[in-house]
Each structure stands twice: as structure tokens, then as C-alpha cells.
Write a protein that binds this DNA or RNA. Structure first.
Lengths: 236, 236
DNA sequence: GCAAAAGTGTTTCTCGTACACCCATGG
DNA sequence: CCATGGGTGTACGAGAAACACTTTTGC
């Protein structure tokens, strides 16, 4: 890249002194709770404090590739649903200098996290988030908003559930996300009406070992053909 | 800022060699068309080519403040609706080095652009966009998607219309944005039912000088109390 | 009068919601 | 048998969409 060779020319020295990073709010559904992944920071300014997973990116590296490599090292997997949220660029947000972070949010099924790392990782209930380093509380807030928005418009729940799941898990995620009670009969209908899920054989198991054993479903990703076009109207 | 003093320390020299910029897709409604603002680039790599308004940001500057100052100099106004879209960070997107751009989109009424600059500015019909510098065509694409999405959820049309407007202008914007024909009787009802607009006296004028002269309306920003809560359902 | 755009009224249909009720299991 | 959660059926009501019809201007 030219930048590196040029970074001391008269015009560029003024601008090419910033750094950038990626941070990710990774959601999963574990022990019947929606959780986000936190890490203990091992860099200097905030050593030992809790924050979102993330790291500085070398100016020659692609952000997504760097994020993938990082996640692979952290949870043994980089193949999960992720999307860029937006950039956080407040002047004072990083003690080492001007660091712009590109925030992502992601969804992963608990089972796809490398088993032996699952226990040492700090999966934290979204309703019990502690104070975080940098501006990470703000980032989590934004991620949660986007997470909720997307739950209504994309079949994202299935990206955080195991290949085989039961409907009450789906409902539970929506109830926690929107902090409300849903009418389970109606919600089931909506789920089944859009034909994206399919009962997988007679298999069945239960969560609390009470009541009628639920049907096991699986998500048929191929059947999903983009967003349902929404009516052009004024929803405000 | 520490960064500037520290930027030659062993650990930081690796990271603090990137630059960042802001770019904005600014929409308006002019001559009955939705348009975006383009500029002729005067920096070296793409001198003379068309692109989105935008510039490199000094690492000590706040992005929003820098954007505001820039827009003031460009169109004589920085008080218009704007929102961050997301960051564009492809490795090869800028010929001078690693430059991450934070993309905004904005809405402004034609009348609030400084009059004498209105004519020299390149307001371009969104249906006739030329090839742009850098990755600006991709940025415009993203902006258009977001613009459309937000039209359905926020009273954003009014941010690109004059204080006094007529309903057919509103409908026209929606029709152009979604490239479709709308049922004007029903759309009028929706507009008037949500009580955010109010007819301003007997005043009236017409666009094509044909047919019955329309009522003039004004948007009552105070009456808007945040997003209407949408039902928790599966719209996919 | 006629054309053209503004604006109103009415009917139909869809979909979200409420809720009564049945099913299958463990104890 | 009862408790508990899984699951189906039905009925009502709000709001979107379709469309017939009236109003007000210029020519």
C-alpha cells in the first residue's frame, strides 16, 4: 500500500495518524437466556476490565478477515451470522489516541462455540450487563436495538439456536428481547405459517420435563428468499 | 491527545498510520425529483471526477463537527437532518492509503441550501446517477436503501420539503423512492390521520396550474413523539 | 362544458390479537 | 386423577387496499 510509504509526506502526515479497530457484540442463547460475549481486556489501558471482544487492526488488513481470524482464535469458529452495525468515533473514546472502531453484531448457536472455550468465556445475560471499558456499553446498547429490529424482519433467531430446536425456545428469545409476554398460540402460528421451519421426524425431548413433549423443528435456510416486501405506508 | 505524541512508539507505529474521512449522501427534492448532491473532486487522485461530498478528517477532530463545518462551507448550512449510515473500510478503496470513511446520509429542503450555491452544485436525479469516484456508488446504494427504509418508519419526508408543502409532493417522493404508483386517496388519509401535519390557512397554489388547487400543509414536529411501536411479529 | 388534479366515502379483505379448548406427558 | 406445557380452532376488530364518486380550478 502506498500509504505506508507515503505516510511522512507533507500532506499525509496530518491525516494518517489514526488507528481503527473492530468490536463485536456476539449474542447466543444459553441456559435459556440471551447472552453476549465479554472478555477480560489484556491490553494496557484497561487491563483486567470487562469489555466487548475486539482488537486494533493493522492498516494493511481487511476488517472482516481480521475479525474472522480473531473470532477463530477466541471461540474456535468464525462462521456465524455477523453484520456491521456502524462506526463509533468519539474523539476521546480511546486513551491511546484516535481510534475509530467498527462495531459488528453477531449471532451464534451455543453449540458452535468451541467446547473447551465455552466455560472460560464470559457469556453474560443481557439483563445483567456490568459496566464495560471504553464506550462498549453504548455499543452494546446500539447492538441490542439492532438485534431487536432485525428479529422482526429477518429469520435471525435461527442463527442463534441449534440446528434442532423447539418453538418455545424461539418464543422465549423474542420474549426476552422485547421484555414482554407473547401469546404462544399466535406466535406458533406465525412461525409455522411462513414455511421456513419444518418438524424433524418424531423426535422429541423436553426442557423442564413437564407437560407434553414438544416437536423438534429445523430451519430450512434455502426456503428463505429475502425479506418479505413490506407495504408502502406510514408507520410513524 | 496522547496518540500524536505516542505515534512513534514501538507498539503504536504499527497501527496509527490509517486515516479516516466522512462522506455524505445528501438528498433533496428539487424540480419534482429526488436528487443527491455530487461534487467535482479537487483532490489529486480523482481530480475533476464526480463523487459524494466528503473529506479527510484530522485525527484530533470530531467527525460530526468536521462534517458540519464542511457542509457549511459547501451549501451554507449545517442544520439539516443527518444520520450515520455505517463505515466503508475496504482495503483498496482509497489510492493514498488505508482510509476508512464514515458514511452519513442527510435530508435538506431545497430552499435551505444557500441560494447562490444552489446552481453551481451538482444535484443529480437519483435515477440518473453517473459512475462515481472511490466506492461512492456503493455508498449511494446503501444510502438509498436506508433512505427508503426510514421513509416508512420516520417522518423524514418533511425534512426534505419546505416548511409549507402540499400532499402531492409527499406522495411524489414516496412514489419515486419506491418506484411505484400509490393510491393517492389512501395515502392522503394516512398522512392526515397521524395528526403530524396541519393545513396552514386558506393559502393555496398549484404545481402544474391544472385542476383543483391543493391545500398547503405544514409539519408539526412537536407532535411527533417517537416511533409508533410496531407489533412484535415475524415480518419475513 | 370538459379535463385534470384535489379530496371524500364506502366496502372488502387481511392480519394481528384474544381466548376457549384439546392433547400428551410425568407424577 | 391432576398439573403443566404443547398445540389447534375460532371469532373479533383495526387498518390496508380497492375504487366509486364529488369538488374546484383553468381553458
Amino acid at each position: 500500500m502506498k500509504a505506508i510509504e507515503n505516510h511522512d509526506t507533507k500532506s499525509n502526515v496530518l491525516f494518517f495518524t489514526a488507528a481503527f479497530s473492530v468490536d463485536i457484540t456476539l449474542f447466543t442463547y444459553s441456559e435459556n437466556r440471551i447472552k453476549v460475549l465479554l472478555v477480560k481486556k489484556e491490553d494496557e489501558p484497561y487491563f483486567g476490565k470487562l469489555g466487548l471482544p475486539g482488537k486494533l487492526i493493522k492498516p494493511i488488513d481487511d476488517t472482516m478477515s481480521a475479525l474472522n481470524a480473531y473470532m477463530k482464535s477466541l471461540i474456535g469458529n468464525d462462521r456465524f451470522h455477523k453484520k456491521q452495525l456502524k462506526a463509533f468515533a468519539d474523539v476521546g473514546r480511546h486513551p491511546l489516541g484516535r481510534v475509530i472502531t467498527i462495531a459488528y453484531y453477531g449471532l451464534i448457536p451455543e453449540k458452535q462455540v468451541r467446547a473447551n472455550s465455552m466455560e472460560e468465556l464470559l457469556w453474560t445475560d443481557i439483563s445483567k450487563l456490568p459496566s464495560l471499558t471504553y464506550d462498549h456499553n453504548r455499543i452494546v446498547e446500539s447492538s441490542l436495538k439492532r438485534f431487536r429490529k432485525d428479529l422482526l424482519r429477518y429469520p435471525n433467531v435461527f442463527e442463534m439456536l441449534d440446528k434442532n430446536f423447539i418453538l418455545s425456545e424461539v418464543i422465549d428469545i423474542y420474549e426476552q428481547a422485547f421484555n414482554t409476554d407473547l401469546d404462544s398460540p399466535n406466535f406458533r402460528r406465525q412461525l409455522k405459517d411462513n414455511e421456513l421451519i419444518r418438524p424433524v421426524g418424531e423426535t422429541r425431548y423436553s426442557v423442564t420435563q413437564m407437560g407434553r413433549p414438544p416437536q423438534v423443528y429445523t430451519f430450512d435456510k434455502k426456503k428463505y428468499k429475502g425479506r418479505k416486501k413490506e407495504p408502502i405506508g406510514l408507520r410513524f
